[in-house]
């Protein structure tokens, strides 16, 4: 079995072409990154606003919990049926938003209250407090949220191949439909590998982005909050 999977993975013919591994990997990555970027554009400002003002925090928790319960496959197939296959992209965004939102929100909430109080007492305006104090200190949890969102989206992109979105899941599904287990398994390995590598890349990016002082302070206490895949 293992040898067959390896044979499939190492066969150059499987890598090239419009439905080949390279093209599908690229598509998989593109969809996932696109969905997370859109989710970040929506959820980060919202999370910052809610965290900064404290308004609507019940919404974040309630919305987050409800979204967690939504079955990804159900959402993807429903959207595909109601619109068309590519509407599954919207499902990816929708599923990525809660993780980014809750990461951003809890990041802002986790900024030491005394630092925010001091910022206020020193004469920072509301906007200055948000940009100069809350946002930089929220970055570890915010980026944790982005990483969780990426895990979620990577996994859902694979699932969304079922409705014809494309990506590495496409190879897996077609393998399943034709009973070619080595194709399924090979694609599964690639999907797993891509997810792990993307997470590593995001972890590296996060280290670059988070200010050193915040990393040092976090090393003393906090950890990254977990979402689901």
């Amino acid at each position: 079995m293992i040898t067959e999977i390896l044979a499939w993975l190492t066969d150059p013919a499987n890598w090239s072409g419009a439905d080949g591994i390279l093209a599908q990997t690229w598509l998989h990555l593109l969809y996932s990154v696109l969905a997370v970027v859109v989710a970040v554009l929506v959820a980060v400002p919202l999370g910052l606003y809610i965290g900064h003002t404290g308004r609507g925090s019940v919404l974040v928790v309630g919305f987050g919990n409800a979204m967690r319960a939504l079955p990804t496959l159900g959402l993807v197939t429903l959207l595909a049926m109601m619109f068309r296959g590519s509407a599954a992209l919207a499902a990816l965004v929708v599923l990525a938003i809660p993780a980014v939102l809750s990461g951003t929100y809890s990041g802002v909430r986790a900024v030491p209250a005394h630092a925010v109080d001091a910022a206020r007492g020193m004469g920072m305006t509301s906007g200055q407090r948000l940009w100069k104090v809350e946002l930089p200190n929220a970055l570890p949890l915010l980026m944790g949220g982005v990483r969780n969102a990426m895990l979620q989206v990577m996994a859902t992109t694979a699932v969304a191949a079922y409705v014809g979105l494309g990506g590495l899941g496409q190879i897996l599904i077609s393998g399943q439909q034709t009973g070619a287990y080595e194709r399924m398994a090979g694609a599964a390995i690639l999907i797993a590998l891509l997810a792990v590598l993307t997470d590593l890349a995001l972890a590296g990016f996060s280290r670059l982005l988070v200010p050193r002082g915040v990393l040092l302070a976090a090393a003393k206490s906090g950890t990254r909050s977990r979402w689901r895949r």
Binding site: N65, R68, A69, L70, P71, T72, L73, G74, T77, L78, A80, M81, A155, V159, Y162, V163, I173, Q176, M184, W227, R228, R229
Partner: peptide, 27 residues
Amino acid sequence: SVSNISLISVGALIGVGGLGRLFTVGF
């Protein structure tokens, strides 16, 4: 618990039962 319950549906794609069946059949 919540994420497990939502994830099981994915199993329908490889032919395992559960409420995910409703999604594949429905699709």
